[in-house]
């Protein structure tokens, strides 16, 4: 099977994928349909395609990441691209090399696809303005992480058959979370109803202008939810800066069996990883094979990233013809 062949009619007008914000419901739907086909493809023995043969994909990570980077690496390789991982050490930045110096260096290498993660909001967009290739945002600061939102949506859609009308609770450090921002955008565009559950210190002040319902009480927020999405809480933010202690945070906002009991009986539990067991999620809940789809999210991640690379490849110059 050649998933790419099946989507000859895919209309994806964007040169880069910088965030969910720029996408329409139809475009998101098309990406998810394509990703769905890649899920099937990835379960075959022969996973290698030649859609991106001859293309160079560079994974440029200014922030360490294991799962996102390896997921993009696998996605690129399965589509036949030459994939190079570039970890930009913080020492290079301390030596004064700016993001734009990096862009110049990259341009000289003639990549076709650039996957970027950076600790600063807006850094990926800035880079996209300065390089000649397609850019995929693999997470920028607290801004967006579009492929995470897409893989979450794919996971939900495969389990529930739809996104429209679902009640989704996103719980934890909303303030600093790019995963939350991308997910809120995507789920809202696709017609789901979003609830945010967090202490006031971990919510942006302007949250009341967002199209969401806000809860400080987790039991109230989880009541009747179809999906419970947990966010990772950075440990350095828990030592009295945003919440008083890990113990207190887990008491009020950690997901355990008792709090989960108020959600729908078949509610799905999601987490972008890596998890802090005993901080935001109880091990028993995380490992509940009937409800936790955390491992499935990883599988969907590769498929979604293949779909994104595929969609963007259509705007690359001298695109090799895809057999129909």
């Amino acid at each position: 099977m050649q998933p790419a062949a099946a989507h000859a009619g895919l209309d994806f007008p964007h040169r880069h994928l910088l965030g969910i914000e720029a996408l329409s419901a139809a475009e998101i739907g098309a990406l998810l349909d394509l990703a769905d086909r890649y899920v099937g493809h990835n379960r075959q023995i022969d996973k290698k395609l030649d859609l991106l043969r001859g293309r160079t994909q560079i994974n440029l990570f200014f922030e360490a990441s294991t799962r996102t980077q390896s997921s993009f690496e696998l996605a690129g390789k399965r589509l036949g691209a030459d994939v190079m991982n570039m970890a930009v050490s913080s020492s290079a930045i301390k030596k004064g090399e700016t993001l734009l110096d990096t862009a110049m260096t990259l341009n000289a290498m003639h990549p076709d696809l650039l996957v970027v993660r950076h600790g600063e909001s807006g850094a990926v967009e800035l880079l996209a303005q300065k390089v000649d290739c397609a850019v995929i945002n693999a997470g920028d600061g607290s801004h967006e992480h579009p492929t995470q939102a897409l893989l979450d949506a794919l996971t939900i859609r495969r389990r529930r058959g739809r996104l429209d009308g679902l009640l989704v609770a996103i719980c934890g450090d909303i303030l600093h979370s790019r995963v939350a921002r991308s997910n809120i955008r995507l789920l809202t565009i696709m017609g789901a109803q979003v609830r945010l559950v967090a202490p006031p210190t971990l919510l942006p002040g302007a949250v009341q202008t967002w199209p969401v319902e806000v809860f400080h009480d987790m039991r109230a927020g989880l009541a009747d939810c179809d999906i419970v999405m947990m966010l990772r809480l950075q440990t350095e933010r828990m030592q009295g800066a945003f919440v008083p202690s890990i113990r207190e945070y887990f008491y009020f906002y950690g997901l355990d069996e008792e709090k989960l009991a108020v959600a729908k009986p078949d509610a799905l539990i999601m987490h972008p990883g890596p998890m802090n067991r005993g901080v935001e999620i109880d091990s028993a809940v995380a490992d509940d094979i009937n409800r936790s789809v955390i491992r499935e999210q990883v599988e969907m991640g590769v498929a979604v990233r293949m779909a994104v690379l595929d969609a963007l490849s259509h705007h690359l110059s001298n695109r090799p013809r895809v057999p129909v």
């Binding site: 909001s121 607290s142 921002r181 302007a206």
Partner: peptide, 15 residues
């Protein structure tokens, strides 16, 4: 400025 735009862009705000 801390407000609607900083919340959207994910930038730390100055209230």
């Amino acid at each position: 400025n801390e407000g609607v735009v900083s919340a959207r862009l994910g930038l730390p705000g100055i209230p």
